[in-house]
Amino acid sequence: MMNETLTTALAPLVDRSWDSFGMPVLELQVAQLMPVVQRLRTEFGFTLFLDVTTVDYPARQPRFDVVYHFMSAQHRSRVRLKLQVSEEAPVVPTLTGIFGSARYMEREVHDMYGIRFDGNADLRPILLYEGFVGHPLRKDYPMEQEQPIVPYRK
């Protein structure tokens, strides 16, 4: 089975791995991200970068989980990577060198959660706008706080 081969081959690089509804989940250190993604792409045929997103656990240390999904059309399988990132230094390396499509997705995560992607040269707002203060998908962003661009009437 593809999943077992993958988890055994990458076992030295990851902290923990488990199976989530048939999809292998690998939890790893930030430093291992680049080698793991590189090997996923070249050895295991995960040529499609599906998504990067973040989960905010306000009460936990470290606070954020950065979550990556990759897909292999060749093996018809997906894999999920999880990195724990702290609030004080929310920095992970960029994947733009391996997947060009990471550019926009990382910009979105930077907008919404304030995770910085080291090496991504263009982290301008993509869904938000210049001048927006804070990161709206962090759980401590006040739900009713608006930052209008056009001044309100009256």
Partner: peptide, 15 residues
Amino acid sequence: YRNYAVLQGVDKVIP
């Protein structure tokens, strides 16, 4: 939509 993204009614910017 009571959140950061949505204008709470167009009457905030035009009559």
